[in-house]
Amino acid sequence: MSLNKFYASLNSQLEGLLSAERDWLANTANASALLFMVMEDINWAGFYLLHGDELRLGPFQGRPACTRIPVGAGVCGKAVYSGEPQLVDDVHQFPGHIACDAVSASEVVIPLYTAGERCLGVLDVDSPRIARFTEADLLGLQAFTQVLLSASEIPMD
């Protein structure tokens, strides 16, 4: 299956999964579970949620993770600081990488923005394989986060 078809199917599954639920926390939990269930060669999928000047661990699937990441630190913190998604082929070569799981070798991080341009946090997906993620994965996961954001009632704080 091509990546475009994979992500079209994934996003359709997410829409169905979230169709009867608007709760942000429940929806991020189910979104991370869905990613972990269907994506190959990943060892972590989840969310870090923005609280002031730090990201705090949110719903995820995988091994225990770092609980707090300062904005600007590591791959997740850089995504929030820059406002840009991060596609990292080798996390061990990323300046300031935070090793929450020594098994992780590559990573893709998508910042989550409301329509009003408020940052909520990030979607973080890790793989034990170097260069696991492509531009097609980045685009597919960006579309995935838009489905999540559209289906959810976003908390005010």
Score class of each variant (00 low, 15 high):
Q142N: 09
Q93T: 05
A105P: 01
A136Y: 02
V125M: 06
M39P: 02
A102E: 14
L10K: 02
G52M: 11
V91P: 06
D90I: 00
L18F: 06
C66D: 00
F144K: 12
L10G: 05
E117H: 13
A73K: 05
Q61E: 14
G16L: 01
C66A: 15
C119I: 03
L18V: 07
T145A: 05
E117S: 14
I154Y: 09
H51T: 04
F144H: 01
M1T: 00
V147P: 01
F133K: 04
P155V: 01
Q93I: 00
T67Q: 10
F144D: 09
L3W: 02
R63K: 14
F133P: 01
Y113M: 15
V103F: 08
V122H: 10
N11D: 10
N43E: 05
N11S: 11
R56K: 13
T114W: 09
K78C: 12
V147M: 03
L25W: 03
M1A: 14
D23A: 14
L25G: 09
Q61H: 08
V103P: 00
S12N: 12
I42G: 09
E117Q: 13
L123T: 00
P64L: 14
P64T: 06
A20L: 03
Q61R: 15
V38Y: 01
C100Y: 11
L148R: 08
Y48I: 09
V38F: 02
T134A: 05
P111F: 04
L17R: 03
T145Y: 04
S104Y: 05
P95M: 15
V91Y: 09
A151H: 12
L3V: 00
G77Y: 04
Q13H: 09
E117A: 15
D101C: 12
D157W: 10
Y113S: 13
Q86W: 01
G96L: 14
V75P: 04
E117G: 10
L18I: 02
S12C: 05
L138I: 04
V88M: 13
